[in-house]
Design a protein around this nucleic acid. Structure first.
Lengths: 243, 243
DNA sequence: CGCCTGCTTGATCACAGTCAAAAACGGTGG
DNA sequence: CCACCGTTTTTGACTGTGATCAAGCAGGCG
């Protein structure tokens, strides 16, 4: 049920698992999320080649980092789910080498460079934010293993296991079920497959009783089975608890 | 000729392209590289599951980040060439979620956490190091595009173009030629292919007059052709000059 | 009700994987 | 200098996963 837990701040929820934040830290985080913006699906928050003007924070919905090849083929390189932030130091670069865009309708906040610096000046907050960035990097590496060395159903299973862990810490899961506002084309561009093959692999996984996926909601019916299929080891997410 | 330019520090060379360092910064960097260690090929500098004890800096040779699947299949997720450094904040994590190992004989230095903090306390150095980390992340993302959305020859071509740029800034190239101390198995584990397919693709590229590769030396005979094949856009490397 | 987007299906093709063996290379020691 | 041995590269025959192309089918929404 609790798809968007009212009154909670997903960034605060996530960072709390990384460090024991002070009251001032929490207040600062809440202030920072004041300047929010609502964006429809498939909108670029920042395009490739643009000069970065701050750091985006996703509060609601799914966004992604992606690149397009000249032929128009897309590769999604990361998901930004609620509580996820762009690169802390991005303003050190003069141009974005990739784009960030929404996959679903999103609520996002833009943090000015000075705001980010203010957050980083607080020791515990800085540690939590840096640790979060390390997890993002680890996730990117895991995606490379996924695309480079796993079969189609294994890739999909791994992605679904990862999202369960990531969405759970921000309170966006209901047992082993969560909203997944992505099309099969989005999943294809994430896993380096075609949408046709995603469709067929999903059907196999449904027939195997592993998952149920309809109306943008994923329910994992057999989590141990899915974990085994994916060889999923959640240690790269550095979650406080287990999976 | 200048495969290992004597007397130069590859980290200093790289960081100098990112920021205008002070004399003190340069001295500090040189000191830091005092405690060096020689390691043979195929040695783990740090294994998966280990607690990180500092940050590695490669001074000579090729190392890599990698993961193994249960079946023993390897995916290489990043190369560490001379001047490349592990994660600055890695000590925030209690366990390594991947391994770092050598691909060739290497000279490496280990920087204690306090040493890294000392470097980060110097503003220009901190900016240069953070920018370098951003480039490493961008490179990881580009590898994901490579493996997810490019054909075998395109992947290889892209990797060769990238390495030309990265090795050039540290003075490890001779025109369009450089030492590449990797086996075809290493290239396969980098690109998500098999060594047999790497072998056949390399032969095609040789026949097409794009490259020459023998005795661990790569010579790019037709750089524009290779760039075109790979759709190589070096902007993600954020080099001072062009490609 | 009708349209658009996203999902599903079918037939065919090709890129890359697998398995296995042979050839070439590079280093070592006699 | 050469014979030997392990590693790396190369080759061949065959298989299979996933891509391509194209058409039909929901189902949500104006």
């Amino acid at each position: 049920m609790q798809t968007s837990p009212a009154g909670t701040n997903p960034l605060l929820a996530k960072l709390s698992t990384y460090a024991d934040l002070d009251v001032e830290d929490r207040m600062l985080l809440r202030e920072v999320c004041a300047d929010v913006r609502y964006v429809t699906a498939n909108t670029d928050l920042i395009s490739q080649g643009d000069a970065p003007e701050g750091v985006f924070l996703v509060l609601e919905g799914f966004a992604c980092r992606y690149k397009l090849r000249q032929t128009g083929v897309r590769q999604i390189m990361a998901y930004l789910v609620p509580g996820d932030l762009g690169d802390l130091d991005v303003t050190l670069l003069d141009r974005m080498d990739h784009a960030i865009g929404t996959l679903s309708a999103c609520t996002v906040a833009r943090l000015a460079p000075e705001t980010v610096q203010a957050l980083l000046r607080r020791p515990k907050l800085a540690a939590a934010l840096r640790k979060s960035a390390l997890v993002d990097e680890a996730t990117a590496r895991e995606w490379l293993v996924n695309v480079g060395r796993r079969s189609a159903p294994e890739r999909i299973a791994h992605l679904f296991c990862e999202l369960l862990g990531r969405l759970r810490v921000i309170g966006y899961t209901d047992g082993n079920s969560y909203m997944l506002p992505l099309t099969q084309v989005d999943l294809a561009d994430t896993t380096g497959l075609t949408s046709v093959h995603i469709n067929r692999s999903l059907q196999d996984m449904r027939k195997a009783g592993l998952i149920e996926l309809r109306r943008r909601r994923l329910t994992i019916l057999d989590l141990p089975g899915l974990v085994q299929l994916a060889e999923f080891d959640p240690s790269y997410l550095h979650l406080a608890s287990g999976a």
